[in-house]
Structures are given as C-alpha cells and as structure tokens.
Write a protein that binds this DNA or RNA. Structure first.
Length: 429
RNA sequence: GCUGAGGUAGCCUAGCCCGGCAAGGCGCCAGCCUUGAAAGCUGGUGGCGUUCGCGCCACGGGAGUUCAAAUCUCCCCCUCAGCGCCA
C-alpha cells in the first residue's frame, strides 16, 4: 500500500511512478483515491462539528439535571442530533472505505533502477554465470529422466489429484530433501534463522502480503474456514510480525522459510507440460528479510547473491534479469529473476524471484518500526527471494546432470546429504 | 465440538454490577538535580482532521437503546484454560 501521506503531499511523483507501469487504469485509480480523500476530509469535518455540538449539549444536560433544573430546550435540540449524525456518518464511512479499498488496489511504487519496458521480453540481463551447454537434442526432458529412473509417477498423480499433481518416489525424495537442506544450510551460515511456518493463513493477513487479484487465480481455499493454503512461505513469514512494532535495533531480521507451496494458477498459464516445472504443489526454501528502509537496496543485492550462490554451487548455468516496469508484479518495487539454463529446452527459465517490496507489505500488515516498544512513524521494508524451489531446482538438475545411460549424477554439494552417493540409477520395477 | 474466563493506549492493569470528560503503573522522551549515571521530583508520551485556535475519535468488530455507552441489549470475531477428539 502506498503511503497516503505521500499521495497527498507529492501526487506528481506518485503519478509519474505509476505511469511507468504502463497501465492507465492505475492513474485513474490514483485520481479517484485523491478525490475520495478530499471528499472524505470535508465530510469528516461536518461530522466532527455535529459530534462536538452533541458533546456540548450532553454536558449541559448533565449539569442542569444535577442542579435539579431541567432544560427542555436542550433536550429538544439534542434529540435531533442522532438522526442527522447518522446520515453524515454513513456517508463519511462510505467515503473512507471507498478510498481505502481503492488505495489497496494501487501497486507499489517502483525503484528508479527498474528498466522501462512492456513485458518480459524487455527485462534486462544484468549478469550471467556458467557456460550454457549446446547439446540439447541428445538430452531427455526432466520428466522422461524421472520416469526412466522410476522416481516419479505422473499418471497416478493425475488420477488421484488431477493435472499438476505427481508422486515423487524412492531416492528422488531424498534428493528433494537434500536440495532443501543444502539451501537451508547455506542460508543458516549467512545469518538466516530457519522457520517452518503455518501452511495456511487467514484472509486478513493474506490481503496484506499479496495482490488481491491473486486470490481467484492462485489461492487454494479451505472450505468453510477462513483459511488459505500458502502459495509460498514468503506469505506466512511476512505475517510473522502482523500488527507488531519491530525494534529498530533488532533489524535486519533474516529468515529462511521452508515449506510446501500450493498454487492453482488457473488464470495464468495453467499446467503446460509434463513434469514438475509448473505444478500445483512443490517445496521451497525462501529468504525473507525485515529491515530499515534505507538498507533494503543493499539487502536486495545480498539476497540475489545468496540465490546465485545456490546455483553456482550446483554448477547450473544461469543469468539474472532486472524485471522491467511492465512485467513487475503489484507488490514489488524492484525484482530480479534468476533464469537457469535448461539444456534440453535450450532456454533460460525462471528458477528464482528476488524482490524488494519496500514498505508495501508492512503498511498493509500494520507492522511498524519503533524503539523500546514504542511505535515510530516509519514502517520496515520487506524483501523476499527464492533460495531454491525443488520443483524447478530438481528439474534443472535432471536436465543438466542426466547421463546417456539414463542415470543421474548427483551434484557434488548434495552428496554429503545423500550418504556420499554419487549417482542415482533406476529403482523399482 | 462443549463449558468457562478474557480482549482497555507500546506493555500491564482499574473502571463494567449501578451509563455522565478512560484512572493508575511500567517503559520511553524532556526538564530539574548530578562531575557523569542511577535514584528521586516535575512535565510530556495514541490516531484522524485542522482555518494550527482547536475539534473529533480511540476500551476486539458491528448493530441497537439513550441527550449521553468501556459500562445496558443483540449479533459476530479472536485469544486462553478445562473437557472431548486426535498423529
């Protein structure tokens, strides 16, 4: 949520920033917010005046009655106020709620370093690592490797739960866990506290952390409960300090979330290919940070460096893109995607999303900065980044490390987590 | 799921039965005092609006009764405890 104070004091800056998103609807929204705000303030003054008169009369009535000298003319005037006030108040709350509802639909203000562009084709590559292997044609898709190894069952997954669900089997489960443990250990070594969060959230905190439009398209809802399955541990981690005052001296707070993630994504791309690249359920290790406003740009680079380190140590070639204005999500002020090289597809595909959400989530969640338990004027910044998602992390390893005989070489850094094993071969019948 | 107890400012609490300016403590800030600090004393310490005089609001949320609601009535939410169920 954009700071309303900024909208009032410097609407030109806000307008210019929103214009870079290339969606005129946001400018209309902003103007509506400003108009409703002006109307609301005028209306509030009217209501305050009525309430003031009511308070005065109440005191006078109380005084005259205590003296035993009733004043019927005061009673008469006082009796008229509630009806009048009810009307003004109804309009006042309507304006206020209308303004706030619109305000919450505005996206975050973007950092100046976000490149101007229409869609993902205009994202700017800012870094590359490793040599993309050119021998795609001779390789199998990650799904074929999985099935060849006997370590996934997509057909039965569909039958039991529908398209987009799968069973992982045998040693692939251990590799999945190894990948998570590897990422978690890396982060723990860099000052992150591991967190196993709730896998469901109430709606109110959920509206604080995400784009409201996501509810229809992405979220799984628990029937007859005010609960949603989390789409990423970013969301419960952001809600960890819901409504609290964070002591400035305790910041930055670095958290490493580990959880399954649940996504419908019916509005977007759907489930587009066999395998585990885009699925309804996967595991993810996530970086999340609460920090002081001035340090969030530096911490964004720190999170990006950590995520890059995961893929470097796995020896998977990748590139980093600075996501352009037209492709940036609602909540982020700036976002890097890390795109790993998938040799079979001969393409870079997104495996990490690394965002600075500035004060957008904190303000919506009612999280404030303070000292010694007292609230200050500022709200903390929040940032999040994938460390590794084991659907896509596994998929790229399966493409990168597959052998011509159908076996899978295990990346060096994962071997300690698999009892020193160096490769996986076919299991089961 | 049942029963009970609760939700008051950054935190803790009183007020509720019996309607009339939300009291007190802690913490924090400032001043006094002190070489400095602590203690002590004094004052301050929320949100919104503002014509900067001030006004309004704030007791989990909403509705109602009333000139007037933390207080009375109704509905809802949440937390805790006990019981039940349970990996």
């Amino acid at each position: 949520m954009i700071d309303l104070d900024l909208i009032r004091k410097d609407p030109a800056t806000v307008t210019a920033n929103l214009a870079r998103r290339r969606k005129p609807v946001y400018i209309d929204l902003l103007n509506e917010v400003r108009q409703k705000d002006t109307e609301w303030r005028a209306c509030l003054q009217g209501a305050d005046l009525l309430r003031r008169r009511r308070n005065e009369l109440s005191h006078q009535i109380a005084e005259s009655r205590s003296k035993g000298t009733p004043a019927p003319e005061l009673d008469a005037e006082a009796k008229g106020i509630p009806d009048e006030l009810r009307e003004v108040e109804a309009r006042e709350t309507e304006l206020l709620h209308g303004r706030d509802a619109l305000l919450r639909r505005l996206p975050n203000l973007m950092d100046d370093s976000v490149p101007y562009g229409v869609d993902d084709s205009e994202n700017v590559v800012v870094a590359k690592w490793g040599e993309p292997s050119p021998d795609g044609a001779s390789r199998k898709s990650h799904a074929e490797v999985l099935e060849g190894l006997g370590m996934a069952d997509f057909d039965r997954g569909r039958r039991a739960s529908g398209a987009g669900f799968y069973y992982l089997l045998g040693s692939m489960v251990l590799l999945d866990l190894a990948l998570q443990r590897f990422a978690l250990d890396l982060l723990a070594g860099r000052g992150f506290t591991p967190v196993s969060p709730p896998y469901m959230l109430r709606r109110a905190p959920y509206e604080g952390v995400t784009d409201l439009a996501d509810f229809e398209n992405v979220m799984y809802k628990i029937e007859n409960e005010d609960l949603y399955l989390i789409a990423t541990s970013e969301h419960p981690l952001a809600a960890l300090y819901l409504g609290e005052i964070l002591d400035e001296d305790r910041l930055p707070i670095r958290l490493a979330g580990v959880s399954p993630c649940f996504r419908k994504e019916i509005g977007g791309h759907g489930v587009d290919q066999k395998g585990i690249f885009r699925v309804h359920q996967f595991q993810k290790v996530e970086q999340f940070v609460f920090c002081r406003p001035e340090e969030s740009p530096t911490i964004l680079e720190e999170l990006r460096a950590n995520a890059e380190e995961v893929f470097r140590q796995l020896r998977v070639p990748y590139r980093v893109v600075n996501v352009c204005t037209g492709d940036l999500g609602t909540v982020a002020a700036k976002k890097y995607d890390i795109e790993a090289w998938f040799p079979r597809q001969q393409a870079f595909r997104e495996v990490v999303s690394c965002s600075n959400c500035t004060d957008y989530q904190s303000r919506r969640l009612g999280i404030r900065l303070g000292k010694a338990g007292r609230p200050g004027k500022l709200v903390p910044h929040t940032l999040n980044s994938t460390a590794v998602a084991t659907s896509r992390g596994l998929a790229v390893i399966l493409e990168q490390y597959q052998q011509p005989d159908g076996s899978l070489t295990i990346p060096d850094v994962l071997r300690p987590y698999l009892g020193g094993r160096t490769s996986l071969t076919r299991e089961g019948s």
